[in-house]
Design a protein around this nucleic acid. Structure first.
Lengths: 229, 229
DNA sequence: CATCTGCAGATTGTCAACAATCCTGCAAGG
DNA sequence: CCTTGCAGGATTGTTGACAATCTGCAGATG
């Protein structure tokens, strides 16, 4: 009957899904402080729903690792200590390097094109001095990287990691590196993929993460150096 | 006061947690067939709890990816098609190779010892011809591999993947390879880590997964060959 | 005879109330 | 002065019932 799908499929997202998204975003951008307690009753009232769906939403966040649940105590926004940040970036290396390898194996020209477009956007933001936009473009690059691999599982893993990364950046904002370097690091990743050089790719991803890590945990660099000796 | 923690911390698992574990195990070992519908009411009655906690448990499984939820329709045990199996093993390569690299970087002798013990157990089972035990030891080796990396995030990702792997093996049991080869592949992974050879490690993990993949999707090898031409 | 409409059945989604558990502060006893 | 016991308040954990939604079939209609 219908010519060519003039209507998009009605896809009402579940209440729990909506709440999950809103809560996740609030946590990601630091609107809810790390360590803060989440009261079920209060949140349910704010969202205008019962505790049932809200509970479902918070449980999802618990499993994503953004929220910690203490039995009979309450829910608390997870705080990232140095070890947590290190682990986060180690996991990102695992997922993003694997995604890059998959793209190389797939030899997809459009994936390469999308990656180049992503760092072009970064370059653009950098040249205009828009640091917030640059940060968004940065994260977007990594999303494109993993999405282009076409692996549902890697994608799902990465979503959680990106939420935590954003959380991390929000908490410790103010530690910027030279925008040009930032763009160059991403270009190196994209071009390694374009060239099909897996070893160079892994190297590029690892050094990129190390760079970010150095900025994020620099506060306690002294303490860590003491601990490692 | 206490000398050296003579008592382990009392940790009563939540009802939802218990149900989640039981359901996950039932799915993993095929006691609930892939594609089967999970009725909330029926399950709640079986477990002797209300629908609340049960719902919480199923939601966790949905997010782990073992169960698919169709809005207002019901819950269904996820079926793994060839693409899904391929993706599963690609994700395992990502996680396990990364875990191996982390162990190499950490230079932990006890990790190497545990890995050797794990494949010794496989060898033992293989020599006695205990195929079921060998299969368990196989999965155990991979758990040890990821656990030894000491990364909470990799560990969590891997748990889901292992559940799906078990599901996969249960569904397609009967496709065994030569036990000696099976042990040798794991030995190769462990020894690559012991030798600190990251490239050899990645190579070993990839070929191991490819081996498993070839057995699991061999049924439709013809169809796939036709599709790829 | 093919097609559409309306109803029954079953299932999930949501809610408000109840029960159990846990932390806090204070007072009594050694 | 320190430990122990106890109520108060608040929070989560759980329950059973109600409302909304979807599927499949019978019956009506051209």
């Amino acid at each position: 009957m219908a010519a060519a799908e003039p209507f998009q499929r009605v896809n009402r997202e579940s209440t729990a899904g909506l709440i999950t998204r809103q809560l996740r975003e609030a946590i990601m951008y630091g609107r809810i402080a790390p360590g803060a307690q989440l009261s079920e009753a209060a949140l349910a009232a704010q969202f205008g729903v019962s505790r049932g769906p809200l509970r479902e939403a918070t449980q999802r966040l618990v499993q994503e690792g953004l929220v910690r649940a203490e039995p009979n105590r309450g829910l608390f926004v997870k705080e990232l200590d140095d070890a947590g940040i290190r682990d986060l970036y180690a996991a990102r290396i695992a997922v993003e390097a694997a995604a890059g390898r998959m793209i190389i194996r797939g030899r997809s020209p459009e994936a390469v094109a999308k990656l180049r477009a992503a760092y072009d956007a970064m370059q653009d933001a950098a040249e205009r001095g828009e640091l917030a936009e640059l940060s968004d473009a940065d994260l977007h690059f990594h999303e494109v990287l993993v999405d282009s691999a076409g692996s549902p599982r890697l994608h799902r893993m990465h979503q959680t990691l990106m939420a935590e990364t954003r959380m991390c950046l929000t908490a410790l904002q103010g530690t910027y590196q030279d925008p040009e370097d930032q763009v160059a690091e991403h270009r190196r990743i994209a071009e390694a993929i374009a060239a099909g050089d897996a070893d160079e790719l892994v190297e590029a991803v690892e050094s990129h993460m190390q760079e970010a890590l150095d900025r994020l945990v620099s506060d306690s660099a002294a303490a860590e150096a003491a601990a490692s000796t």
